[in-house]
Amino acid sequence: MPASEPRLHPVQEKDIPEKALAALEPYRNTDGDIYTIWATLAAHPDALRRFLVFGNHVLGKNTLPVRLRELVILRIAWQAQAEYEWLQHARIARRVGVSDDEIRALGRLEPDGFDEVEQTLLSATDQLVAEADLDDAVWKRLRDRFSAEQLIDLVYTVGQYQTVAMAINSFRIQPEPDIAALRAELPLPARA
């Protein structure tokens, strides 16, 4: 989604209830500011606190290897055209060793340059986004490689980040300046 005026503005920290503020403590940038997405979702503080519990599992306790998790998230960001998600997770993916060429490849209809396991995971992500289901062939390839916990975490990751992408796009959440700076290096590729 191209940048535009936010539909919901981030809540000022002084206006966030204490329980929600405590839950947001780990969600601050290097300047100590709460990330825009979380400050925006703080407009519904009770839902935010509950959402963060699930999000903490998906992002922090996920049984998928972190590289694979980030490939999935970036693929969802491209599918949804959620620029904030794309830029934020491009930065995270770089930190875990995903190359810029691989990040760019995730923004193509047929991503290339990935091994067989990664390609299967990307196909599964595309199917889950498009159909909320997996065909038998992809399921078998996934089942041969991943544990039941990892398969559940795959579905949870896709669901979580589709929800995040919907929030980003619907509320027109704007990237922080340090994240927006990645637009020059790793812009969100448009869907064909």
Rank of each mutant, 00 (worst) to 15 (best):
Gly113His: 04
Val58Asp: 02
Asp15Thr: 09
Leu154Gly: 00
Glu149Met: 15
Gln160Asp: 12
His89Ile: 00
Ser99Thr: 02
Asp100Pro: 07
Pro189Ala: 04
Pro65Leu: 14
Ala90Trp: 01
Gly159Met: 08
Ser99Asp: 08
Glu25Cys: 10
Arg172Thr: 01
Leu41Asn: 00
Ser147Trp: 12
Gln160Tyr: 09
Leu8Asp: 00
Arg141Glu: 03
Gly60Glu: 12
Asp101Ile: 10
Ile16Arg: 07
Arg50His: 14
Glu131Asp: 12
Arg141Met: 02
Ile34Glu: 07
Ala184Val: 07
Glu85Tyr: 00
Ala167Glu: 14
Arg94His: 14
Gly113Val: 03
Asn169Ser: 04
Ser147Asn: 15
Trp139Lys: 01
Asp135Arg: 05
Ala105Val: 02
Gln160Ser: 11
Ile179Cys: 00
Asp15Ile: 10
Val117Trp: 15
Ala181Leu: 08
Pro6Arg: 03
Arg28Pro: 01
Val158His: 04
Ile76Met: 11
Leu48Phe: 05
Ile37His: 00
Thr40Arg: 01
Pro175Thr: 07
Trp78His: 09
Arg143Lys: 15
Gln127Val: 02
Arg67His: 06
Trp78Phe: 01
Leu68Gly: 15
Asp31Leu: 11
Ile152Trp: 13
Asp144Cys: 08
Ala184Lys: 06
Ala124Ile: 07
Val164Lys: 05
Ala77Gly: 01
Leu134Arg: 00
Tyr27Met: 12
Thr120Cys: 01
Phe114Ile: 03
Leu68Val: 15
Leu64Cys: 06
Gly97Phe: 02
Trp78Cys: 07
Lys14Arg: 14
Asp144Leu: 10
Asn169Val: 00
His44Arg: 12
Tyr35His: 12
Pro10Gly: 04
Arg108Gly: 10
Ala77Ile: 07
Asp115Tyr: 06
Ala80Trp: 15
Thr157Arg: 10
Pro65Tyr: 12
Ala77Ser: 05
Asp33Asn: 11
Pro187Val: 06
Asp15Asn: 08
Asp101Glu: 10
Thr63His: 14
Arg69Met: 12
Gln127Gly: 01
Phe54Val: 08
Leu188Thr: 05
Leu74Trp: 05
Glu116Thr: 13
Ala105Cys: 09
Leu122Asp: 04
Ile152Phe: 13
Leu121Phe: 08
Thr163Asn: 03
Thr30Gly: 14
Ala77Gln: 02
Thr120Pro: 01
Phe54Cys: 13
Arg91Ile: 06
Met166Arg: 11
Ala167Ile: 13
Lys19Met: 13
Ser147Tyr: 12
Asp46Glu: 06
Ala82Glu: 04
Val53Ser: 13
Leu142Ser: 01
Arg7Ser: 00
Val58His: 06
Ala42Val: 04
Gly97Ile: 01
Ile37Tyr: 06
Leu122Asn: 03
Gln162Arg: 15
Glu176His: 02
Ala23Trp: 01
Thr63Pro: 12
Arg49Val: 11
Glu176Ser: 06
Leu186Ser: 02
Pro65Arg: 14
Ala23Asp: 08
Glu18Ser: 08
Tyr35Ile: 06
Leu52Pro: 06
Leu122Cys: 05
Val66Gln: 09
